[in-house]
Design a protein around this nucleic acid. Structure first.
Length: 893
DNA sequence: CCAACGCATGGAT
DNA sequence: AATCCATGCGTTG
C-alpha cells in the first residue's frame, strides 16, 4: 500500500532522519498513509509532544483561548489538538471537549483529503510539500472551501467514519442534503454528489473560488469531478447553528492496525475533532459508494459490500450522547454504521428486524446461506445479544433480517417509530446497537433529533387539550412566534395534508417519515394548533382525565379554531381573556366569552374602543405580562402529562388515538402523520392501529370488562357514537346528493366500520390478535358487508369479521371487553338516534350550527369558524376532537 | 390451535 | 422499470 513510507528507511521526521528497522506509525499524511517514525519520534508523537520537541522554532504556535496551552496550529502533526473558534483564536481539544463547542470549522481539509484515494501523483505532495502548506503557519483558511468541496464529494463516497458524529439535530444535513436535494439522492453518484453540493452548500464568491486553486489538485482523479465542485463549495449551512460533535471518539493517536478503515477513521477522527469538519462531512455521512471501494485499502469485505449508497434514511445520525453512551469512558472508536426506524413489524413480537439490504451487506458479515449466522450485538448498556443474521430470498434478491430481536427491543422499550442504530466499535469490530426513542425531544440546545412523534400519545394530534410542553408552554405567546402563528398553523396543517395526499410535494414524505425539520415545524405548529382550538361558543367542554391526562371533550359542538388567548381573571374577579394583536403584539383584554378569529388585531377590539388602535399602549405592564404568560404556561404544562411510564396507559391512549383517528382516516387522510414517524407500511394507513401496529409485543393489551366504565371505555363508547353519527351524516349526504330515497341502507347504520376501528377494537379488547380475522387490507365499500357485522339486530359487532366474507357472522370470539363495549356503544347510539329522529335536534342542529348547513363555514359570534370544505377546518377539527369524542357531527365535505 | 418460519405480495422509492 | 422492504399469509412443527 505504501509507496513512499514503506520504502522509507528514514524517520519521516525531517529533523530526525533516524534510520529505523521497524517503523512506527505517526500522523496520517494527506495520502492516507502514515508517517513512519523512529521510536523516539513516534513516542513523542504519541505523547503529544512532537511539535514541542521538534517544531518549537517553527511558526504557527498559538495559545488556547481557554487554558492558554500552546498548540502548534500550523502543523499537520498537531492539527487534531485544537479547534478554531468562531470568534477567532483556537482552543485546545481538551477545552473544546469540555465546552462542547466543536462547531464546524471549515479551515481544515476534510478527512478525505488525507485518505488514500488520491492519485499517485498527488501522493507526492506529501511530506514536505504538505509541510509547506500546513506547517508554515496558521491554518490555511483559503483552502477551506475547496477542501470542503472535496470533502463533500468524497465523504459522499465513504462510509461514515468514526468521527463522523452527527449533531443530534442533523438539520443541516437535512437542509443541505436530504431536503434540498432529495430528488437527486438516488441518482448516479456523480450527479448526486454534485447536486448535493450545490444544494447543500453555501455559495461562495467568485474570489473564493479562485482562491481555491489547489483544491483541484487534491481532488485529482476522484470519482467526483472535482473540477466542478469548487464552484459550489459545500460549506456547512448551519454554521450558525448550535452544533457540536461527539467527542466519544478518541482523539488520541491510535496505533494503527492493518485495518485501513479503522485507520482512516482514526485519523479522521482526530481531524474532525480538531476542525469540526466532520459535521459537514456528516452531511453525507454513511453514504457508501462503489466508487470508494476500489480506492480504499480498507477491509475487503466492507469495501466490497459498501458498493452502494445507503439511502439517506439509513444514515446514522447517532448523537454524541449515544456515542458516549456506547463508548463509555473508553477510547474506543465508534463507527456509526447505519440506523433504522423500526417498523411496526420490526417492533412487533415476531422478533424480526428487517435490515436494509445494503446496510446488511455492507456492514454485517457476508452470508451465503439463508440460515445466516448468529451475530453478537452489544447494546448501549453493554448487554450482549445474540441475533440470527440471515436472509430470505426475495425477488432474485435478498431480504436480510435480524431474528430474535424481541428481547432486545423490549429491553430497550422500543416501539415502532423508534430508531435503532448500529455502530461498530473499533478496533474490536464489535457491533453495537443503540437506539433513539422517537419521542426523544430535542435535547438542550441541539436542534431536534425528533420531536415527539413516534410513540404517539401526544403527537397523534389527538390531544385537543391545550397541550404544551413545559419548556415551550406557550409558543404563541412569545412575540416572535406569535407574529405569524395563525397563518402558520393553518398553513402547516394544510401542508401536512398536502404532503400526505400529494406525494409530489415531497417525495420523502411518501413514507411519512418526517424529517427532523418537519418535525420541528410540526411541533411548533401543532402546539400552536392546539392553542388555537377553542370550544365552540356556548359549548362547555367536559374535562375528562384519562390516565393522568386532561382532555377536553366537546360533546356537542366540535371545537373551533380561533385566536389563542389567555384566560384570566381581572382585578375585580371578572373572567377575561388576554389576546395578542397580531400586528403590534400588544395584549388586549377581551371578555371571557369572546371568540376571536385566528387573525386578530387591535382593530377588532370592539370591547374596548379606547384600544382599537395598535398605537395605544397595552394595559399590562411587562411584569404583569410575564406573570400572565408564566401562569399560562404552568397551567398549560400541567394539562398534559404524558403518562409514558405506564405502558398500559400508553396503549390505552393509543387505542383512543386510533379511534380518534378514524374520522380522519375515513377520509383517507390524516393529520396524524406526525405520529407515524415510522415508515408507513403499505397496506395500512397512517396512524394505522391494526393489530400489528399497536399491539403490545406480548399481544396482551389492556382488557376491559363489558361493564367497565373507565374513562377509556366511556370515551371509546362515545367515540363510537360519534363515528356512527359521522357515518350517518355521510350517508345521508350521499343520499341527498343522489336523491335516491329508495336506498336500502338503514339510515342509522354505518356503511361499515372503518377497518382500523375493527382492528383496534379487536386488538384492544381481545388481546390475542388474530390477523386472519382482522383485515384491513381491502377497502370495502360494500355496505352490506360490514353492516351485517354491526347489525344492531344481531346485537353484536363482529370485529373478527373479514370484510370479504359476507357470510362470516360468527359470534365474537372476543372474550367481551372492547367488543362488548362497542356493542354497547352501538346500542346506545341507536337508542339515542332513534329517539332523536323523532324530535330531530342535536346532531343535525349542531351540524347546522357548525357548518352553516352548507359546509362553507360560518361565523360564530365574534369568531370565525373555518369552513368545512377547505379541508383545514376539518383537519383542525379532527385534531381537536381526536381525543375528544365528538358527539356532534362535524361538517363533512 | 398456536407460534414460528419463510416466501410472496405489492406499495414505495 | 427495477429494486427495496414492510408485512401478509400459507406452511410447518
Amino acid at each position: 500500500m505504501s509507496s513512499s513510507s514503506s520504502s522509507a528507511k528514514f524517520c519521516f521526521n525531517s529533523t530526525c532522519k533516524n534510520v529505523f528497522d521497524r517503523p512506527r506509525k505517526g500522523w496520517r499524511r494527506r495520502t492516507g498513509e502514515f508517517a513512519d517514525l523512529c521510536d523516539r519520534c513516534a513516542s513523542a508523537y504519541e505523547e503529544g509532544k512532537f511539535c514541542e520537541t521538534f517544531h518549537m522554532n517553527a511558526s504557527g504556535w498559538r495559545c488556547c483561548e481557554s487554558c492558554g496551552k500552546q498548540i502548534h496550529c500550523g502543523c499537520i502533526v498537531s492539527f487534531h489538538m485544537f479547534v478554531l473558534l468562531d470568534a477567532g483564536g483556537i482552543e485546545c481539544i481538551t477545552c473544546a471537549r469540555k465546552s462542547f463547542i466543536l462547531t464546524p470549522n471549515p479551515a481544515w481539509p476534510p478527512p478525505s483529503f488525507f485518505l488514500p484515494v488520491l492519485p499517485e501523483r498527488i501522493k507526492d505532495l506529501s511530506g514536505k510539500n504538505w509541510c509547506h502548506i500546513a506547517g508554515s503557519g496558521p491554518v490555511p483558511w483559503r483552502q477551506a472551501p475547496s477542501m470542503f468541496s472535496s470533502s463533500s464529494a468524497h465523504s459522499e463516497l465513504h462510509p461514515r467514519l468514526p468521527f463522523e458524529v452527527d449533531r443530534p439535530s442533523g438539520i443541516d444535513r437535512l437542509i443541505g442534503c436530504e431536503r434540498l436535494s432529495a430528488s437527486s439522492l438516488e441518482k448516479k453518484k456523480v450527479d448526486d454528489s454534485s447536486e448535493r453540493l450545490m444544494n447543500g452548500s453555501m455559495k461562495l464568491g467568485a474570489s473564493e473560488i479562485v482562491e481555491n486553486g489547489n483544491a483541484g489538485i487534491n481532488c485529482g482523479e476522484r470519482t467526483i469531478p472535482c473540477v466542478n465542485i469548487p464552484q459550489k463549495a459545500s460549506f456547512p449551512r448551519n454554521s450558525t447553528s448550535n452544533s457540536h460533535f461527539s467527542l466519544a471518539v478518541s482523539s488520541t493517536p491510535i496505533n494503527e492496525a492493518n485495518d485501513q478503515t479503522k485507520v482512516s477513521g482514526t485519523h479522521v477522527s482526530r481531524l474532525t475533532l480538531s476542525t469540526g469538519i466532520g459535521k459537514q462531512v456528516t452531511a453525507h455521512n454513511g453514504a457508501d459508494s462503489s466508487s470508494e471501494t476500489p480506492l480504499r485499502n480498507g477491509r475487503p469485505r466492507a469495501d466490497a459490500r459498501a458498493r452502494n449508497q445507503l439511502l439517506p434514511r439509513y444514515w446514522p445520525r447517532i448523537t454524541d450522547q449515544e456515542l458516549q453512551q456506547i463508548s463509555g469512558d473508553s477510547n474506543s472508536v465508534i463507527t456509526p454504521l447505519f440506523e433504522k426506524m423500526l417498523s411496526a413489524s420490526d417492533a412487533g413480537r415476531i422478533g424480526r428486524l428487517v435490515l436494509p439490504k445494503k446496510c446488511a451487506e455492507a456492514y454485517f458479515p457476508a452470508i451465503s446461506q439463508p440460515e445466516g449466522l448468529p451475530l453478537k450485538v452489544q447494546d448501549s448498556k453493554g448487554t450482549e445479544w445474540m441475533f440470527q443474521f440471515r436472509f430470505w430470498p426475495n425477488n432474485n434478491s435478498r431480504m436480510y433480517v435480524l431474528e430474535g430481536v424481541t428481547p432486545c427491543i423490549q429491553s430497550m422499550q422500543l416501539q415502532a417509530g423508534d430508531i435503532v442504530t448500529f455502530s461498530r466499535i473499533e478496533p474490536e469490530g464489535k457491533l453495537v446497537m443503540g437506539f433513539r426513542k422517537a419521542s426523544t425531544a430535542s435535547t438542550s440546545n441541539q436542534g431536534s433529533e425528533t420531536i415527539v412523534a413516534g410513540d404517539g400519545v401526544p403527537m397523534n394530534g389527538n390531544v385537543s387539550a391545550k397541550k404544551t410542553k413545559p419548556d415551550q408552554a406557550s409558543p404563541w405567546s412569545k412575540d416572535e412566534k406569535s407574529v405569524s402563528h395563525s397563518k402558520e398553523v393553518l398553513g402547516a396543517k394544510s401542508s401536512f395534508r398536502s404532503k400526505r395526499k400529494n406525494s409530489t410535494l415531497n417525495s420523502k414524505c411518501k413514507r411519512l417519515r418526517l424529517e427532523n425539520e418537519d418535525l420541528v415545524e410540526l411541533q411548533v405548529t401543532l402546539e400552536q394548533a392546539l392553542g388555537l382550538i377553542r370550544p365552540a361558543p356556548n359549548c362547555v367542554p367536559s374535562v375528562v382525565v384519562i390516565e393522568g391526562c386532561e382532555f377536553e371533550e366537546f360533546e356537542q359542538d366540535a371545537p373551533v379554531i380561533g385566536r389563542p388567548t389567555i384566560f384570566a381573571t381581572d382585578h375585580i374577579g371578572e373572567k377575561i381573556q388576554w389576546v395578542q394583536c397580531e400586528d403590534c403584539s400588544k395584549w388586549r383584554k377581551i371578555p371571557a366569552d369572546a371568540f376571536l378569529p385566528s387573525r386578530w388585531t387591535c382593530s377588532g377590539n370592539t370591547w374596548d374602543p379606547e384600544r382599537l388602535l395598535c398605537s395605544v399602549a397595552q394595559e399590562l405592564t411587562a411584569e404583569q405580562l410575564e406573570d400572565l404568560l408564566l401562569t399560562n404556561d404552568q397551567i398549560a404544562s400541567k394539562k398534559i402529562k404524558a403518562p409514558k411510564q405506564d405502558l398500559d396507559a400508553v396503549e390505552a391512549l393509543e387505542g383512543l388515538d386510533a379511534l380518534a383517528n378514524l374520522a380522519i382516516q375515513e377520509e383517507g387522510e390524516s393529520l396524524t402523520s406526525s405520529s407515524q414517524a415510522t415508515t408507513k407500511h403499505p397496506r395500512h394507513r397512517a396512524g394505522c392501529t391494526c393489530i400489528v401496529c399497536i399491539q403490545p409485543p406480548s399481544g396482551k393489551g389492556p382488557k376491559h370488562k363489558q361493564t367497565c366504565t373507565c374513562n377509556v371505555c366511556l370515551t371509546v363508547k362515545r367515540r363510537f357514537r360519534t363515528l356512527m353519527l359521522r357515518r350517518e351524516k355521510k350517508q345521508s349526504e350521499k343520499e341527498a346528493e343522489t336523491t335516491l330515497n329508495q336506498s336500502q341502507q338503514h339510515p342509522y347504520l354505518p356503511e361499515k366500520l372503518p377497518d382500523d376501528f375493527i382492528q383496534l377494537s379487536a386488538s384492544t379488547g381481545n388481546g390475542s390478535p388474530n390477523r386472519k380475522t382482522v383485515s384491513s387490507d381491502e377497502p370495502d365499500d360494500d355496505p352490506s358487508r360490514i353492516r351485517s357485522s354491526v347489525s344492531p339486530f344481531k346485537g353484536q359487532i363482529d370485529l373478527n369479521i373479514q370484510p370479504e366474507r359476507d357470510e362470516d357472522l360468527s359470534p365474537v370470539s372476543d372474550s367481551g371487553g372492547m367488543i362488548k363495549l362497542i356493542q354497547d356503544a352501538t346500542e346506545t347510539y341507536l337508542r339515542e338516534r332513534l329517539s332523536s329522529s323523532n324530535n330531530r335536534s342535536s346532531p343535525a342542529s349542531n351540524e347546522k350550527q357548525l357548518g352553516g348547513g352548507i359546509g362553507q363555514g360560518g361565523s360564530f359570534g365574534q369568531g370565525i369558524v373555518y369552513g368545512s370544505k377547505d379541508g383545514v377546518a376539518e383537519a383542525e377539527h379532527s385534531v381537536a376532537s381526536s381525543t375528544k369524542p365528538v358527539a356532534s357531527l362535524s361538517p363533512e365535505r
